[in-house]
């Protein structure tokens, strides 16, 4: 009984996907279209003139020196900045053609479709299994939870390491494993987009490598936007790259987008002088 319904659901999902991709080719495959004219924290102007299209099944990387506002821009994409008091911005962020900052839009709804992986691994103080099942429960998912959990853990390349200790606390894992657990948690609900805010900055090189491989595998099913200040990482994994830089001309520290394009072009043949200097390592 359940199998048939699932099969039906799956086939329906495929049809949905097909329809969707048709719709998306029309808009050039852009899932999130982000256009920030000015962004403030209280009276402090943090970002200006940044417009980045996040394309479907691509990895879009934001690079730039620290303090250039790349995390701020990323957090705009699923309204995590709403939690910061005094946050406001001019511009728009469109998710599949819909303005997510429109007053009628529920921020929590947005975040269910645009998942997030944070800089610090942040598993909940519950079992590994419950960590992954968390999102399913959040969405009151009625289907087979255990299968979904296993699937998510497999796709995040953690299954083999934890399959015998699913009831152990998520906090008992190593840093790299915790981060993969967080990725599993984020993808278990199959969000449309995965935002990753420097996901490897707290990890050692080997764990970093694994996460990078994972991202490349995941992009076949998800759209990924990643903030990193590791240039090699962006070069290795990203399809598109946006370079942000800090403008200190009017006394503040205001980030803005210098250049956006295919990663190959940005890293091998940057158009702007700032980009050239940054990639050559003349400033950091």
């Amino acid at each position: 009984m359940r199998n048939t319904t699932n099969a039906e659901k799956l086939s329906k999902a495929r049809i949905d996907t097909a329809q969707r991709s048709a719709k998306e080719t029309a808009s050039n495959g852009v899932v999130i279209d982000c256009n920030i004219d000015e962004l403030y924290y209280s009276t402090f102007k943090a970002v200006r003139d940044t417009s980045i299209p996040v394309k479907k099944n691509r990895i879009t990387a934001f690079i730039g020196p620290s303090g250039c506002g790349k995390s701020t821009v990323l957090r705009c994409l699923n309204r995590m900045n709403d939690l910061v008091r005094g946050f406001r911005f001019k511009g728009h962020v469109h998710f599949r053609g819909k303005d997510i900052y429109h007053p009628s839009v529920d921020a929590t709804a947005v975040r269910r479709f645009i998942g997030m992986v944070f800089q610090q691994p942040n598993p909940f103080a519950m079992s590994i299994y419950n960590n992954v099942a968390f999102g399913l429960r959040l969405n009151s998912y009625k289907g087979p939870v255990a299968e979904k959990v296993e699937d998510a853990l497999k796709r995040s390349a953690l299954w083999d390491e934890v399959k015998d200790k699913l009831q152990k606390s998520g906090l008992s894992l190593s840093g790299g494993q915790q981060q993969r657990l967080c990725i599993a948690r984020a993808i278990a609900t199959e969000p449309e987009v995965l935002l990753m805010d420097e996901p490897c900055s707290a990890l050692d090189p080997i764990a970093t490598r694994r996460i990078e491989e994972l991202m490349v595998e995941l992009k076949t099913r998800y759209t990924i936007a990643i903030v990193t200040h590791n240039l090699q990482q962006a070069q290795r994994v990203a399809d598109n790259t946006g370079f942000l830089y800090v403008d200190t001309s009017d006394g503040g520290r205001c980030g803005y987008l210098v250049e956006f394009g295919e990663s190959g072009q940005i890293f091998n043949d940057p158009r702007e002088q700032y980009t050239k200097d940054y990639i050559r390592g003349e400033f950091s």
């Binding site: 995590m80 947005v110 975040r111 269910r112 942040n122 909940f124």
Partner: peptide, 8 residues
């Protein structure tokens, strides 16, 4: 943040 980031 993790919970909120998932749309809770």
């Amino acid at each position: 943040d993790a919970a909120i980031g998932m749309g809770a």
